[in-house]
Design a protein around this nucleic acid. Structure first.
Lengths: 341, 341
DNA sequence: TTGTACGCGTTATCAG
DNA sequence: CTGATAACGCGTACAA
């Protein structure tokens, strides 16, 4: 076994095998040109002996395309994002692609920076996961970065709302909110409260609006709506605020499971029993839900598939128009919501 | 604003600014050599106009080192891993490094493949997070890949047990198990059960052994030990099995929070109240814990810091010997364990 | 089928 | 301080 110092190059492998650089390249990569099986074996043998590892950077340079895809998420600890990430990584792994991950921590500026870095890295595609703000001004910078990147042949897919200048995996938040409202009304509820999360996030806004709209359309009073942070703590705070007021409702819809979980904790701390005293529903059906008690009624989004679809879409050759892959799920009724009459 | 098609190269920027390629490079990167502020501004201007983005691949090639670090985790949805990942990514971001993430799904083979890909990518460092198997034969392949990579100047840090041929952030599982036992004995418990997870994982084994050892050393009967998968479902199954038997114990120690959560669910389904009927303790203090009820007594590991330390260690110039950064935490008593007499 | 030679985009060395 | 020019490691027309 040879023990050269530093990186082993294809040149060295070729030399050891007594062939030209070109032949070595063809033997190891397997190009269009055929190569004599004997020579090929000699090359492979030499490569093994020298512990050769191809330099992907160099390959990418000459080929003009890398085997790296970028993934931008809000926060990798959040199961919503990490489950989608799993979907992306699963397909990537299958295709022999490397996934470069970046977390925005919910900062639009960082989102731009990340895009820039991926651009630098010449990632072949970028998947951006995360809710858009309801203020279009906050997209423009990102849209510019995206355009630059696309201009160089990069593909971009956004998971969320179809508002950016790229393909998107569109999550049917509005319709899902409606479905949830109908399901809860079917249980007999008519007076609702909504933990609406941040009004700046389209994701939160769409879910809340869809819900409210369906409730009103059914002739019931408009739900009380409490805004707050789109996090577990935000849910806790919003629920506390709600309970401090004197609004009447039998059921509260939180626009994300994280919010709902915080809300349930708040209820428990005040001695309220769910669903006896109050019904609670969430959204997303994150994995951790199976261990909270009582089981949370929610809207199940196929998150892992979302990630898969996103990368798949990103890798497809782009069309004339921006494409959309619609994603919807289904209401899952569990113990946190009870039937009333 | 220029609108060239395809990638803009530094050459084009130089041409537009009317300077040489070398000068453009110096102006934009900022090398040792100084460059006339006037020219520098001209170059920067041209770069802006052309929307120039440096090609990191090319940079890496000529510099012989990239700005990419690899991160290998078991499963990014698992909060243990994702919290560590956050620590790694936080520092990386601060340093302007890109993080390439790979999930092994607990397969040693995949671990090797990932190392190989990072090697190809010429990542400047790799952090491997995940328990080693208790069977040394399963490391040898990985150790070989690691050696290859190090041989090319790559730095590797393992988070877990100091058994690989690389630096490691060593988590004091054994000692922590002992501490936990002492804390629970202080509450008056003497009869314990241990949900030991998989005996193949050093992490699980060390925690369980430390615990058992301290209990026995205190003169109490050896805890009943139930093995199983090192997951939430494994904890559920193990607890069920335990409750089906007729062992006596007042407190059960699960070697990971995930197991403990599954165990608590199993208890609840059988009508057992925690901590009145049974005390339960976990390990790790994962974030999701604050929303399970009752609050779970556990051993808090500073997971995010673990990630930070790992990358920091990986980036430090290596010494003669493999280094170790020891990590320990503290027992956190919550409501899931009650004092008995 | 194999080898030669050029180019990918950038940095660094060495003269001007 | 600036400008040619040689690498870096690899793929691939083109020629043999």
């Amino acid at each position: 076994m040879g023990d050269p110092h530093g990186p082993v190059t294809l040149q060295q492998v070729a030399a050891r095998a007594g062939v030209s650089l070109a032949t070595a390249s063809r033997a190891i990569n397997g190009s269009a040109r055929k190569v004599n099986p004997q020579m090929a074996e000699r090359v492979l043998q030499a490569a093994r002996e020298l512990n050769y590892t191809v330099n992907a950077q160099a390959q990418a340079m000459v080929r003009g395309r890398s085997r790296v895809v970028g993934l931008v998420v809000g926060d990798i600890v959040d199961p919503y994002f990490s489950t989608i990430a799993t979907g992306v990584m699963g397909l990537a792994d299958q295709l022999g692609l490397l996934v470069t991950l970046a977390a925005t921590e919910r900062s639009p500026e960082r989102e731009c920076d990340q895009m820039r870095m991926f651009s630098s890295q010449r990632a072949q595609a970028v998947v951006i996961v995360g809710s858009r703000s309801t203020d279009p001004d906050t997209w423009t910078d990102l849209d510019k970065r995206i355009a630059d990147y696309q201009h160089r042949g990069g593909r971009v897919v956004n998971v969320g709302q179809p508002v950016l200048q790229c393909d998107t995996v569109a999550i049917a938040n509005h319709g899902a909110g409606q479905e949830m409202a109908r399901a809860l009304m079917e249980l007999g509820h008519t007076r609702f409260a909504v933990l609406a999360g941040s009004p700046d996030l389209m994701t939160a806004r769409d879910r809340a609006e869809g819900f409210t709209q369906a409730v009103v359309a059914a002739g019931h009073p408009e739900p009380v709506s409490i805004e707050g942070e789109f996090t577990r703590d935000g849910g806790y705070a919003a629920m506390s605020q709600l309970l401090d007021g004197d609004d009447e409702f039998t059921c509260v819809f939180a626009v994300a499971d994280a919010l709902a979980i915080g809300a349930m904790t708040a209820c428990r701390e005040r001695g309220l029993t769910i669903p006896d005293d109050l019904s609670v529903a969430g959204f997303d059906d994150i994995l951790g839900l199976r261990d909270i008690h009582p089981g949370l009624t929610t809207y199940r989004l196929p998150l892992e598939r979302v990630g898969l679809e996103a990368l798949q879409l990103a890798l497809r050759t782009p069309g004339e128009q921006w494409r959309q892959v619609p994603i919807s799920g289904e209401v899952v009724i569990r113990e946190s919501t009870r039937r009333i009459n």
